[in-house]
Design a protein around this nucleic acid. Structure first.
Lengths: 194, 194
DNA sequence: TTTAAGTGATAGATAAATGTATCATTAAGT
DNA sequence: ACTTAATGATACATTTATCTATCACTTAAA
């Protein structure tokens, strides 16, 4: 009934493991098996090692982000709309991706690192374009902008996860924060709603 | 010659351990001892357990931040100056504090959590005041602002550590990013230099 | 030179986690 | 009802990290 993925139990275990690891990145195989309500023996039948399990989870997460990123249009002269689209697509993936930021072993995987870099490059190219047009500040380094976006996205996921932020507010708050900052522009109307 | 702290070897080991842990948060005691150029037996003579060592490091880091925070003036009607002062004081502490964000075991320590919360409260009170005056956006939650500041500070430390950002640029970049965002205000002059 | 304190190397002891193998039970298809 | 495959519990081996204990060596003071 609540089975969706490609094959069968393999996917179910993968989903459960992802959830458990997002709750506790240092989870033991025993904890993962308990959470998935299976025996640890069964877990080993489907995944040869913990490293293999983590790698599969990472690949799965990357596929999700990659396919989302492909659907996003970066408008040359509308940063606001581009960011809103970006965040609206990526925020819902939080649950499945969050652990990526904290699983150190996964960052050392060369393929993961390569695909992460490719994802960042897409956004980086847009940032460069907007900057060239004079839409973005000259005083802030492009790399800093990229890093800030990436990190605040994770912070937003964290806040949603811990119940401090409504999922539907996140894209607007992120876009407004990143593009305009905290200062109240002293005209009557302001910010992203427009 | 390069001995400063309170007593003697205890402090030296503490400093070395802090550095090693900021390089690799999952360092073993053996790695810490090697980095400090002492035997692991000696390490245990000075620190009864790894947990005790981590706790001492955390306390030391908190003391540094607490005494820095006490020196900072939060100006009621000059956010820019307040932020510059805050970041200029805290950025240099990065090396000694960075690991705090990644040592999970330390966050579970109740005293550490309590003192961290107290530090955040100081900044939170100022944010509330600035917001009440209409200097900060109404549309962004206070808690989000606090979290953003806190996280971007860590990001800046990371960027400095990895060589992507000059230490002397950090306070300006942080202040400008947080208060004004990425967008280029289309007047000729702009941002924090003023 | 002798003595005492501190140190580093080393060898276990203990604990926790990963991974393997076995076995009885359950569930599904025939 | 019978057979077969999959499962979970369990026990065991292996690894890794923490921590204890011992011992020989260095250094500095007496």
């Amino acid at each position: 009934m609540q089975n969706q993925g490609k094959s069968n139990k393999h996917s179910v275990i993968l989903e459960a493991a992802t959830e458990q690891l997002s709750l506790k990145p240092t989870s033991t195989l025993q904890e993962i098996a308990d959470y998935a309500k299976i025996g640890i023996a069964t877990l080993h039948r489907y995944f040869s090692s913990k490293e293999a399990l983590l790698e599969e989870i990472a690949f799965h997460a990357l596929e999700l982000v990659e396919s989302s990123m492909e659907e996003i249009t970066f408008y040359e002269n509308d940063i606001n709309r581009s960011f809103m689209e970006l965040f609206q697509k990526l925020i819902p993936l939080g649950d499945k991706i969050y652990f990526l930021a904290y699983a150190a072993s996964v960052d050392e995987n060369p393929e993961v690192a390569f695909r992460e870099a490719a994802l960042k490059k897409v956004l980086m190219d847009s940032i460069r374009g907007w900057k060239k047009q004079g839409l973005l500040k000259d005083s802030l380094p492009e790399k800093w902008m990229l890093t800030t976006i990436y990190n605040l996205l994770f912070v937003a996921w964290q806040e949603i996860h811990s119940g401090n932020m409504a999922k539907n507010d996140a894209a607007g708050i992120l876009t407004d924060t990143i593009l305009n900052g905290f200062l109240n522009v002293n005209k009557k109307g302001d910010s992203y709603g427009h």
